[in-house]
Simulated scan of single mutants.
Amino acid sequence: MNRLSDKEAIDLLKHGDILELGQQANKIRQEKHPGNTVTFIVDRNINYTNVCLNECRFCAFFRRENRKDAYLLPIETILQKVKETQEAGGTQVMLQGGLHPSLPFEYYLNMINTIKTAFPDIVIHSFSPAEILHFSKIANKSIKETLQDLRSAGLASLPGGGAEILVDRVRKIVSPKKIMTDDWLKVMETAHSIGMESTATMVLGLGETIEERIEHMRRVRDLQDKTGGFRAFIMWTFQPGNTQLGGNKLSSWEYLKTLAVSRLYFDNISHIQGSWVTQGQQIGQITLAFGADDLGSIMLEENVVRAAGTAYQMSIDKMVNTIEKADFKAAQRDTEYNIIRRF
């Protein structure tokens, strides 16, 4: 199959039949992942602080430092959350916080090191490019040195958070204080260059055009051609509740169509993840017929999407049931997509 061009991808998003797209994407998924297995991970998002300098208009989670409901979790609380994760069969934690104006770089190094010392088997898959760039500035170090220090402390890989739409026109509207496209890509390229892999993400429904969605995908695909460091592409929809940006939720129809096109477009990324967190369990199940081979995490804790008024619950049993009812075989994976348990 020839590589899908940007023009062809745009045409498919604008005029393609959704069921045909689903069938084509499903065929590619089966070629890349024969055997009918759908994976998921057991992990926990630990939001160690909600204080953030960026104040993104699409975010309902952040608080200014002087607000009464601003917080910074004590290390004892973080360790308890990691302990609960491991006891629940979890293998990974994702530390996510705002860009706190008062914390030194050593705080983050100590936090990772303390977690890794107490729980050596837990994988720390944490800190988006925006956080990494913030750390490099407060530490007065290069991005590469910052990442090397974090890796020495126990950081394993980076999540793809903060990508939103990798087009500066959109970013200047929805998150003007946040890093722009080239900075996000530069952090990821640097991480890949030292052998630290990551995921890539995309948030639909931020006022982007069809052409800008494909531009986002092209920037990710181009970098993947260069580094091969993205393990997965993960896409979800903007949740407008309680945000400054507001607006309406994108339809599940539009989400599924774009998901299918992403599977056709990313010939160089192995895994495409379906989002039950923003779409709900039933649409999450349908993503498995639209190119997704992974359903992400059961998320023992999740606060950012919840702050926007969207909350879907998941357990291991419910996840396995969701996958099996779609006629797939469920398997628990680790951060690197190795299967560690079949059901």
Rank of each mutant, 00 (worst) to 15 (best):
L259A: 13
E254F: 02
I283G: 04
A163I: 00
T227Y: 00
K27R: 11
P176M: 12
V51C: 01
G160S: 08
V93H: 07
I18N: 09
Y108C: 12
Q23Y: 03
D6T: 09
K137T: 09
T209G: 05
R231G: 11
E301R: 08
E65N: 13
G274S: 04
R333Y: 04
I41Q: 08
K14I: 01
F127A: 13
G98T: 06
F266I: 11
K27Q: 08
G16S: 06
F233I: 12
K14A: 00
D293H: 03
C52W: 05
H33F: 02
N66W: 00
P176H: 11
I122V: 15
M319R: 02
V304Q: 01
L155V: 13
A118C: 14
L166T: 11
I75G: 09
T85F: 04
H125C: 14
A331L: 03
M202A: 13
M188E: 09
M188P: 03
F62K: 12
D182E: 15
E31Y: 02
R64L: 03
A163D: 10
N110Q: 14
D69A: 01
H100A: 11
S142I: 03
L99T: 11
I179C: 14
R263C: 02
M235V: 10
I138S: 12
E212I: 03
L133E: 14
S152L: 15
W184G: 06
T287S: 13
K83S: 15
T278W: 03
R44Q: 06
H125L: 09
D43P: 02
Q281C: 06
D327W: 02
G162H: 07
P104Q: 07
D334S: 05
K226A: 09
N113A: 15
R263D: 09
Q285N: 00
G228C: 10
D43R: 10
H33E: 04
S136F: 03
I41G: 08
T77S: 15
R169E: 09
P240F: 03
L256R: 13
P240H: 07
G90L: 07
M180G: 15
I122W: 07
N113Q: 15
G291M: 01
R219G: 05
R218Y: 04
M94N: 15
G89E: 12
R231K: 15
I234E: 11
A308C: 06
K7N: 11
D168P: 09
A200E: 03
G246C: 05
S152A: 15
P129Q: 12
A70E: 06
E189R: 15
Q23W: 04
C56T: 07
Y337V: 10
W184Q: 14
C59W: 01
T85R: 12
T258S: 14
V170A: 03
T243Y: 00
I75D: 14
G228P: 05
K249W: 00
F119H: 15
E55H: 13
N26M: 04
M314R: 08
A139W: 04
A118D: 10
A232I: 05
T199F: 00
A308E: 03
F266G: 08
I283T: 08
F230T: 06
T258F: 05
K144C: 07
R171V: 08
A200D: 04
